[in-house]
């Protein structure tokens, strides 16, 4: 069976002023439809580079990348990105931000009213109906990130790519949004690739955790299958032996096998 998103022998080399820098080498990653995959690793391991390659924001220097059987050439609305710093346009309302994405995907097929409905539905999915007409500067950081997720979901993408989506949020807001993301993924059966440096987040949300070795020339070190039943409850999992075993596995990988002295 062919994977939905497929990376084969992908390498990435940046040409810097001090000569070529090999960020990634021989990255192989097959992701199935509906799967939630986290990429974890120390900073500088190229985990965001992997995501940007799938997003099409970067072009791989070697190897092949496929999405739904087609080669990835440049960015496209079939792979929606949720950025770490929300990246909402400050001159558009929440609805306006989501609508910009909706128009791009459904503009030639649907009426304005239908698209507006889609935008509102996406905002409802992230529980932000009350903020439809607010501007980004009028809402909190957590709400902005939810609008970012709504914008991505509204495009009905083949894959949702999240680059440390909750990294800039406080712990309570982060936990809340993680729970929301789980229920959204359960409802929409989304295929998700999420970059994170948070071990608990990775174990709680993922079907598989891709652990990267340290850069330069980083690659996939190990892949951990998280076989915890869904829906998952963070409170119950706190004392769960299996959960703590997975957590321990990731921590061992990060701090024993690939320990990185503080940069």
């Amino acid at each position: 069976m062919n994977a939905y998103i497929q990376l084969d022998n992908v390498g990435m080399q940046f040409n810097t002023k001090r000569g070529p820098f090999i960020a990634l080498r021989e990255v192989d990653l097959h992701i199935q439809k509906g799967e939630f995959v986290s990429i974890i690793g120390h900073s500088g391991c190229g985990k965001s580079t992997v995501l940007n390659l799938v997003a099409g924001l970067l072009d791989a220097t070697s190897g092949t990348l496929l999405c739904a059987g087609r080669e990835i050439r440049g960015p496209g609305p079939d792979r929606a990105v949720v950025f770490q710093n929300h990246s909402l346009l400050p001159w558009l309302t929440c609805t306006g931000n989501v609508l910009l994405a909706v128009e791009q995907v459904f503009g030639d097929k649907e009426s304005k009213a239908q698209m507006l409905e889609r935008a509102h539905a996406a905002l409802e999915l992230v529980h932000l109906t009350h903020a439809n007409d607010k501007f980004p500067h009028e809402i909190s950081g957590g709400m902005k990130q939810r609008v970012g997720i709504a914008r991505a979901l509204a495009m009905e993408p083949k894959a949702l790519l999240m680059d440390e989506p909750f990294g800039a949020l406080d712990a309570l807001t982060r936990a809340h949004l993680q729970d929301e993301l789980m229920s959204i993924c359960a409802a929409t059966q989304s295929t998700v690739i999420m970059v994170t440096h948070d071990v608990d987040e990775a174990v709680l949300l993922s079907d598989r955790i891709v652990m990267m070795t340290n850069g330069p020339s980083a690659t996939v070190g190990e892949i951990l299958h998280v076989e915890l039943p869904r829906p998952r409850e963070r409170l119950q999992l706190a004392d769960d032996a299996a959960y703590n075993h997975y957590r321990h596995e990731v921590l061992t990988f990060l701090y024993e096998k690939h320990h990185k002295t503080a940069a």
Binding site: A80, V81, L100
Partner: peptide, 25 residues
């Protein structure tokens, strides 16, 4: 660059990049 990344991910046309992003920014 964040705004330009949004434009790239959404595949906005040059016209939309100018009117929706560059002009207001």
């Amino acid at each position: 660059q964040d705004y330009m990344n949004v434009a790239r991910v959404l595949n906005l046309s040059e016209w939309k990049i100018v009117t929706r992003i560059l002009l207001p920014a």
